[in-house]
C-alpha cells in the first residue's frame, strides 16, 4: 500500500514535468569574468590596505595628539606663573616645586629658552617696583641654574607694576600681581 502511493506520486511529478515547456537551454555563463575577478581581488586588497592605513593613521594621529597633549602640558608647566610675598623676592616653597618641574622639562628639552618677566603689585613707587620685579625674575633664574641648567638659556625683563594680571587695590589682586611670568623664546615647537 505505501509503495503504490509512492509510485503514483512519482508519476504525477514526472507528468507535470513533461507537460511544462521546451527543455531549458543551458544557462548563460553569469559568473564574473576573470578580469572582473582580478579587479575584485585588487579592490579587496585595496580595501584592506586602506583600512590598515586608516588604522595606522588613526594610531599616528592618536600618538600625535598625545604628543601634542604632552607638549601642551610641558608648555603649561614651563609657563606656570610663580608668585611672591609682599616686597619679597625669595622663592617660596610652593614656587620651589613649580621651578623643579620646569627644570625637569628644560633638562629634557635642551633647545628651549625662557624669558622671565618680573612683576610687582601697585604699592610702592613704579621705579622701585621695577627693581623688585627684576630681583624676582633673577631669583627664579638663580634657582633654575642652581638645578644645573645653563644660565644662557634664560633672559629677564622687569615690568614692575606696569602690567598687572589682576585689576584692583586689594590683597587678592596684589597677590596675583606679585609674580614672574615665563615666555618661551626658543624651542617651543619641539617640546617632548
Amino acid at each position: 500500500m505505501y509503495k503504490t502511493r509512492l509510485l503514483v506520486a512519482t508519476f504525477v511529478v514526472a507528468l507535470v514535468a513533461a507537460c511544462g515547456s521546451e527543455p531549458a537551454p543551458p544557462p548563460a555563463p553569469t559568473g564574473p569574468t576573470p578580469e572582473e575577478l582580478e579587479r575584485r581581488r585588487q579592490d579587496s586588497i585595496a580595501r584592506v590596505q586602506a583600512a590598515e592605513e586608516a588604522r595606522m593613521r588613526a594610531e599616528q594621529e592618536q600618538m600625535e595628539r598625545e604628543a601634542a597633549r604632552r607638549a601642551e602640558s610641558l608648555r603649561r608647566t614651563l609657563r606656570e606663573v610663580v608668585y611672591f610675598d609682599y616686597d619679597q623676592s625669595n622663592i617660596r616653597s610652593d614656587t620651589q616645586e613649580k621651578l623643579r618641574a620646569k627644570a625637569d622639562v628644560l633638562r629634557g628639552n635642551p633647545g628651549v629658552s625662557l624669558r622671565m618677566e618680573g612683576h610687582a603689585d601697585e604699592r610702592g613707587t613704579s621705579e622701585y617696583n621695577i627693581a623688585l620685579g627684576n630681583e624676582r625674575a633673577e631669583a627664579v633664574i638663580q634657582t633654575l641654574t642652581g638645578f644645573g641648567l645653563d644660565a644662557n638659556r634664560f633672559s629677564s625683563v622687569s615690568y614692575g607694576e606696569e602690567r598687572p594680571m589682576a585689576q584692583g587695590s586689594n590683597e587678592s589682586a596684589w597677590s596675583r600681581n606679585r609674580r614672574v611670568e615665563f615666555v618661551i623664546t626658543a624651542g617651543g615647537d619641539e617640546l617632548r
Binding site: 623676592s89 621705579e127 627693581a131 627684576n134 630681583e135 633673577e138 631669583a139 638663580q142 622687569s158
Partner: peptide, 9 residues
C-alpha cells in the same frame, strides 16, 4: 642711572 644686572641694581 640704575643698571639692573643680575639680582642687583
Amino acid at each position: 642711572f640704575a643698571l639692573l644686572a643680575g639680582r642687583r641694581s
